[in-house]
Design a protein around this nucleic acid. Sequence first.
DNA 1: ACTTACCGCTTGCAGTGCCG
DNA 2: CGGCACTGCAAGCGGTAAGT
Length: 602
Amino acid sequence: SILLVHYNSVSHLHKLKLSLNEPIEPEVPNDHGDNKPFKCGLCKVAYSQQSTLDTHMRSVLHQSRAAKQDTSSSTTDKEEGEQLVLGVGGTILPTPSPNPVQQQQQQQKQKHQQQKPLQPQPSKSPAATTEVPPQHQQQLLQAQQAHLQAQQAYYQQFQFQQALQLQQLHQAQLQQQIAAQLSGVAGQNTDPNVAALLSQDLSMMLMQSFSPSAAMMYPAQIPLSPSMYSCALCGSVLPSHEALAQHQQTCPKAPASSTSTATTPTSEKLSLASTSVTPATTTVTTSVVSKPLEAPNARRIRTSAIQRKLLESYGFDLVQQFNESAMGLPSSIAYEDKFFCEGCRKEFSSIWVYKAHMEEIHKKLLPNEVIEKYTQLFKDELKDEEDEDDDDLSRTEEETGLQPEEKSNPVKLDQPIKAEKEDIKEALVNGHVTNPGEHMSTNQDQSASEVMPPPPPPPPPQVFPVSPYQLAMMQAMQSPSSTGASVTPPTATPPFPVSAVPGVQHMHNLPQQPSISPAGMQQLPPYLDPNYLQQKSPKRARTRITDDQLKILRAYFDINNSPSEEAIAEMSAKSGLPHKVIKHWFRNTLFKERQRNKDSPY
DNA sequence: ACTTACCGCTTGCAGTGCCG
DNA sequence: CGGCACTGCAAGCGGTAAGT
């Protein structure tokens, strides 16, 4: 009975839901050729996600149909329904056999049974199914085939989750090893924070080294996991090379001559990268098979998954470079010249990434003049391109409120762009990189005011590295004053009270923390939300708790649903959520759990 | 008497599917 | 494709108990 209560608990249902809603889902072939394994047999509809099916199951439409079905159908039909489907009213769900998924499926079954006490209890023995008429047996067979397919898809997904966990574990171990190596080599430098930062830095270098230039230009090649393999044809993720080979033989999308050979990377075609790198004592083996041209939707989904994985694993730098790669920046600015970090011998495609790297890794600030100079270069170049390409530019500028004199008097540089960039690089090489601590302690007057703009008034702040293209576009859409020469450098100290945003505060405390919390990284800062910019809007702000934050809260909730202040503080630190939000969440979650228990027949 | 925390419940925003 | 209906869920509201 305790187990049944657990099956009905929010915790269990939440985990079940998460397991069914993994963002990167392998494509599931079914009878219709689409990827909608979750079907409602009663309403003849199919969905790609379990949650959507749940929503449908609760809908009035389905309930009314189910009620009609209950009243009209015979007892035999109901027994068949229980045999054929797991869900209520003819829902077809994956039904695994003796494997780790089986338990979850049984739980799912329990869940549906508990949610719908009207449904007959499946107390009949298997022998009862042998008494059904032949035509029903055929239906049973078809349904079981559908079950099998859904089960395979589900199990595949389960394997992917395991692989993902393995990847995260492996990455953590790798960083620990590297940190240990570094601290051991450095000798006197035993600061764990520094070691962690260095190991993180080195991890990025490892990535660069296993695929020297392509890793930056085509971040999609970044391995999902050292032990994960992705099918180039259907996108399925497999846990081993053998499984991949076996899968490719049976892949439904495989053309007759398709093989998983390596291809040359292009902007539209990702490639297979399988390389071993042995720096010091660690070995990184990667293998990612990608697919050729994809549909825009599929690629967007994959891109977002890649970005997420990059963000979780390697930080902003790589995601930023990936974004730039995907956005197709003006070539001369973005890629013709790269910025080189002498400290860690890494190349960066833009000054913004370089700047973010210097601040995060080396704790140094680039001089404002350099940033502004470069920004002006980019703006001019972008403007030139727009002037050539877009005849409607003037109309757009009018819409954005640009004054006529500003349009007619764009800032022109005396020197060619190339020469200016050389100057900037020279300035960087000559050590015009300043330490923020020195600025804060010694040059509080002019220098500080240059590097550290005063907090108010708050223009739209930039905390994350923003690509030059994005920056220019945002500036173009903002107030006329923002089109002037003064450009606030991204990722420098934001011209905005950081403490006002708990999530950001948490992220800015990162240098003091040995590891970067994925939750903090993933959380979209409220001020990036368009609603935040419209603070006069009467709409009340709505916090979106991310999955990672939810995991943190859920872990505490499972232990104690009435957390102490200390526990709340811990959760706040880990998740970046304000105390108020955490308390609200606990109250609502507790309320929901009680409601569920109240509704539960157990 | 006042404050504080908790609890039950409602409100309102946002996302999604359905339908014409 | 836009409007509508439905739903999930964070935030808000009001009542109540406990503490000072």
